[in-house]
Simulated scan of single mutants.
Amino acid sequence: MCRKRRKIRKNVKLLENQTSIFGVGLRREHYQYLTEKPITDIDWFEVISENYMNTEGRPMSVLESIRKDYPIACHGVGMSLGSSDQIDPNYLKELKRLIERLEPFLISDHLAWNHLNGTRLHELIPVPYHEESLEVIANHIDYVQNELQRQIAVENISAYFNYATSTMNEGEFLSLLTQKTGCSILLDINNIYVNAKNFQFNPLDFIKTIPKKSIAQVHLAGFTDMGTYLFDTHAEPVHQEVWNLFETSLELIPENVPIMIEWDENVPEFHKLEAELNKARKIMHKGTKNETRKTTEFIP
């Protein structure tokens, strides 16, 4: 049975207009380097919310030092928007405290679930894409936005199975969520490409279903080719096929949308991460000159 949906309050704070475009994920491997206050090519940092919620010590000290010099986005992996359970109110209280402390320009989590009957999983599990789950997840997003008094962005995930009960695709589902709740979209280009290869669809068609004005951030990352399928590991540089998809998608995303590189495993030295981000900067610069190279290399 669908719950009665809560309306979003009019005083919920919308996402801030972030004009510094190019960012990376803050990882502990770079703490020492960043505490030396180097001049970098980075405009902003994204942090995993759960790593800093309800905690003190060196990680928070480093983060607060970085926050003095850079804007911060908070990206969650534990909200479990797609769960049949209600959102954990204690989780939201801890997240709200972090938000008040950091004043991030963006708060995000995933279109997924990882919490059931009090047990938290360490994976992001996809949801079925149909009307009933749409209503439940819209309820959850309304609740979160009302409790945080902030608009949130919802990210498309990489998945390795589909539900037979789905009546629409993920892009259509996300589009409807933005209409119902006023949330925005964190568009992960790598996840789209991984799913397109694994499930054999055109990734550009997916991006075309997302309302351009709803896209609040873009993720780029590296996958691992497992032979029979692609695995979203964030352990390698962005593959050329993903760069191609990003480049061809520029006309479908807002001109000044914040863009970042995710690199979570086999984390390289910071200057290599900067070099990877500068590839995105170069592609964006070409796009503003209407020189974007059209390609179909990413089509499965």
Rank of each mutant, 00 (worst) to 15 (best):
V238Y: 04
R6M: 13
T224I: 06
G25S: 12
S133M: 14
K4D: 11
T178H: 01
R3H: 09
F223T: 01
D225W: 07
V194F: 05
E247G: 14
D43C: 06
M226T: 06
Y33E: 10
N162E: 15
H285E: 15
T178N: 04
K4N: 11
D88Y: 01
S61W: 09
E50N: 09
G57T: 08
K93G: 06
K4Q: 12
T224N: 09
A280W: 00
Q149N: 15
E36V: 02
E147T: 11
I42M: 05
R27Q: 04
S61H: 14
I8D: 04
R67A: 15
E276W: 02
Y33D: 01
G222S: 07
F231T: 02
T19F: 09
Q200Y: 14
G287F: 04
R6P: 00
G78Q: 06
G23T: 09
E247D: 12
R120H: 12
L116W: 14
F201P: 07
E276K: 08
L252Y: 15
D205F: 12
R5E: 12
E29S: 07
Q217G: 03
P258N: 14
I125L: 13
I66E: 01
R150G: 10
E269W: 02
F161R: 04
R6A: 11
T119W: 11
N117D: 15
A153P: 01
L220V: 10
T55K: 15
H110W: 03
H115A: 05
P258D: 14
G222Y: 06
R101A: 04
I141Q: 06
